[in-house]
Design a binder for these strands. Sequence first.
DNA 1: CGCGCTAATGTGACCGCTCACATGCAGTGC
DNA 2: GCACTGCATGTGAGCGGTCACATTAGCGCG
Lengths: 337, 337
Amino acid sequence: MSAKPGKSNIYDVAKLAGVSHQTVSRVINTHPSVRPETRQRVLDAMAELEFVPNQAARTLVTSKTNLIGILAADTTLYGPAGGVNAMEIEARRAGYATLTCSINPSSEAEIRGGIERLRRLGVEGVIVITTHNRPAIVAREVLTDIPVVAIDAEYSPGELSVDVDNLDAASRATQHLISFGHRKILHITGPSASFVANQRRAGFVATMRRNRLKPLIAQGDWSIEAGYNIGRDFDFDGSGVTAVFTANDSVALGLLKACRERSIAVPTRLSVVGFDDIPEAGYFDPPLTTMRQEFRAIGHEAMSMLLRTLAGEREVESEFLKLDFMVRESTGPAPLL
Amino acid sequence: MSAKPGKSNIYDVAKLAGVSHQTVSRVINTHPSVRPETRQRVLDAMAELEFVPNQAARTLVTSKTNLIGILAADTTLYGPAGGVNAMEIEARRAGYATLTCSINPSSEAEIRGGIERLRRLGVEGVIVITTHNRPAIVAREVLTDIPVVAIDAEYSPGELSVDVDNLDAASRATQHLISFGHRKILHITGPSASFVANQRRAGFVATMRRNRLKPLIAQGDWSIEAGYNIGRDFDFDGSGVTAVFTANDSVALGLLKACRERSIAVPTRLSVVGFDDIPEAGYFDPPLTTMRQEFRAIGHEAMSMLLRTLAGEREVESEFLKLDFMVRESTGPAPLL
DNA sequence: CGCGCTAATGTGACCGCTCACATGCAGTGC
DNA sequence: GCACTGCATGTGAGCGGTCACATTAGCGCG
């Protein structure tokens, strides 16, 4: 009731409690050598004055901001959104706040701008979550004095990163289709500038080649529309394609709609494999066979690595995760054409 | 190459440029009365030392943090994620950074903890985006000295908020079904603690009553699973229900799957109306008739209101938005049972 | 030619906190 | 009984900026 919060400082509290400002500081920082009785007196004074420690002043002297930057591409997508959320919660547990900066990962200017922005804000570490390589590379190049953890970027020894084995996952997805007897398989890719998309594509191509099959490629961009448009226009009969592996679940959703419109039965005539296992995937028509990504776990792990590094831990190791394959009803034996 | 960034201060720069620290400060703040030649000399020195202004020091003296807090419920969901993203971009344009704090809106402790956390971080204003009322109420109660903008909370005169006319929207959705001849309509609600969910429910109930029809209610919680479970277990034949209005699109997705499994034809036997128009909605089977929410626009508007208030503008007015109805293929004339 | 005025720059205090160090006072050992 | 230790507390400096004000130079003008 008395004073407006944020208006009183440790000297006001000290005076009211009848101690020195240093003792107040000790109470704030839960220093051991303060008599319980004294501590209580200070706490009471703080409560009465609605004292809120001035973060800027602490930061100024300790040069600890307790801020972690997150450089992210589209945080609207399910994957990044979950990851960022998990990071925030994990950071909070360690007393850190997160500052998210969204950028277009294809724009060098935005990448540099975002990094510069985070740096000026004084972040103690940065997590880069994009499916592109470039942001992580630039961040590491520019931010030489603070730790950088990359998610879904090309692994390089000595750097901190949480990576998913997209090559292996795409390979397994492809193999799944091949073992069902499919021979002509189409892959609808993600954007060509995306590292992750390229890994998935490479896994697909390599597996097809290994089986002496010709990899068929259609260029997509992660979007539902891309899946729909390709599904609507592609000549399945002429090409003899009996299965499609899409770069993500959204693309698969668009593709499934096109199939419905063209009366292409899934999986009887066409098998479809997605990637991500978004919450909706199991409710598609038919329920989608897909590679499951644990986005929250990935975000959590990345933040944990960063926090450990910040805490001075030496032996922090990069992670390389394998994915679970969710076999549902959108895939089946190849039809006899 | 020379010094580590963040290591030099204005005095170092001043010395190197042969000016006083105050002149350096003037250059940082683009003060008019600095000779172009002097300015350039200072800029060169800053570049050479890789000088980065210390945000904490500026904040300490100006008591301007340039930070805006966002108190959000589940930022993983499509709606909030889009809104928060739009807010961040809008804030950045005005030189502000956003600090997102995720909470469980049903926990009083988490609400208070989140608010206290933002306050300690020194935010200059807060946007509350939850579908619950409580967080906004508590935020306004506690944060008396900074502006608070609420999204999707009960409107109260004199307070800043961006609201969607859920009552009207639910009413129109219901009316749409009624005008198709449906008489027995089921509403699957959102969580009972959610203000928004209750508004939608109230709009449904009022419209049914106005048409002398009995409102049928099933309790949901926004989730796909809720829609699926209710769709799987509900006795459509016994009850004679021919249409369902769901609290959001996810619930509708679950319901549609259940219908498929039970061979309940949509819209021939059962019409379904959703709410939100998530990107996937038009790709459901069948494409979903739903109320469209412009989440990004809502976030943008809320941030704009907050920024205007922070800039000292007096006449900032709350918004009350009407929604567009997207009629697609999941609704049709009531069947003759 | 000296007055006032403005543009460009410099000086020192201070924002609120923590740090290193100083002090006071009990308890301990010989 | 006295130096020695260690706990509880106090003192003053300084983190890196900005603010208010002081100072200097340059110029028009009566």
